[in-house]
């Protein structure tokens, strides 16, 4: 296996994705190519409707593209059935959502336990691991409270703990700071960067928030359903249209 194969975490090539009927078709992705490396935090940016979320969904295995190939940590996703995709997500992916998606009727620790319980881990083991990561995200002592009793920043910390508790190689973050103020957003991104920094992990962040671009190792800009360019330095991006 080549060195390149070792370093590539996510590779999408020639991906097409259409929605709607043949008469009224909306093109979401058109011959999109995307690559993310192990150990890096890459951001997907671009104007609304450019296909960021669709590409993220394709990488996450929640959408199957009409054409093209998708490979995540050496596993081809195109051609997998729904059950195999579900198993793949369970083992390999962590999610941080824009609106946190914490279950309000469960306690903080129970929310964090969810990915482990989905994997079939015993309750006590899941609880112990959840408590450990809750401490890492700075919420020790808040584990038995309900998420609604926490601030937005604290809720996003819980979501990050939930995304990482089962140590997935790929962390998918969808607008993780859009519901947060500048400082809280910066703290959240520091946390994501610190906790996810590992040569065996890759973090893909979809965002509109140019205030957090500085946390990215690379930034992939999307336009009209494809990656228009990839930059190492956020200063090189024109953020006026984002």
């Amino acid at each position: 296996m080549s060195h390149v194969a070792h370093t590539v975490a996510v590779r999408a090539s020639g991906v097409d994705m259409f929605f709607g009927t043949p008469d009224n078709q909306v093109v979401a992705l058109k011959q999109a190519d995307f690559e993310a490396r192990r150990g890096e935090l890459i951001m997907l940016v671009g104007p609304s409707g450019c296909g960021k979320t669709t590409l993220l969904s394709v990488i996450a295995g929640t959408l199957t593209p009409q054409a093209g190939t998708v490979e995540v940590f050496g596993q081809r996703l195109d051609g997998l059935g729904q059950e195999e995709l579900t198993t793949f997500r369970r083992k390999n992916l962590g999610f941080v959502f824009q609106s946190f998606n914490l279950i309000p009727t469960l306690s903080v620790v129970e929310n964090v336990m969810v990915p482990l319980l989905i994997q079939g881990r015993p309750y006590d083991e899941a609880r112990a691991r959840a408590l450990a990561i809750i401490e890492k995200v700075g919420l020790k002592g808040r584990d038995d409270g309900r998420p609604n009793a926490l601030s937005g920043g604290q809720q996003q910390r819980v979501a990050i703990a939930r995304a990482l508790v089962h140590e997935p190689p790929l962390l998918i973050c969808d607008e993780p700071t859009s519901a947060l103020d500048k400082d809280t957003g910066a703290h959240i991104m520091e946390l994501v960067r610190d906790l996810s920094r590992s040569p065996e992990r890759c973090v893909v962040v979809v965002t509109h928030d140019h205030r957090i671009f500085r946390f990215a190792d690379r930034i992939a800009e999307m336009e009209d359903g494809r990656i228009s360019r990839v930059v190492d330095d956020p200063k090189l991006l024109d953020t006026t249209h984002l």
Partner: peptide, 14 residues
């Protein structure tokens, strides 16, 4: 709870 069930599905629950 639909959006939470959707999230659980996305996280890999069949």
């Amino acid at each position: 709870n639909l959006k939470y069930f959707a999230a659980i599905k996305a996280m890999g629950a069949g």
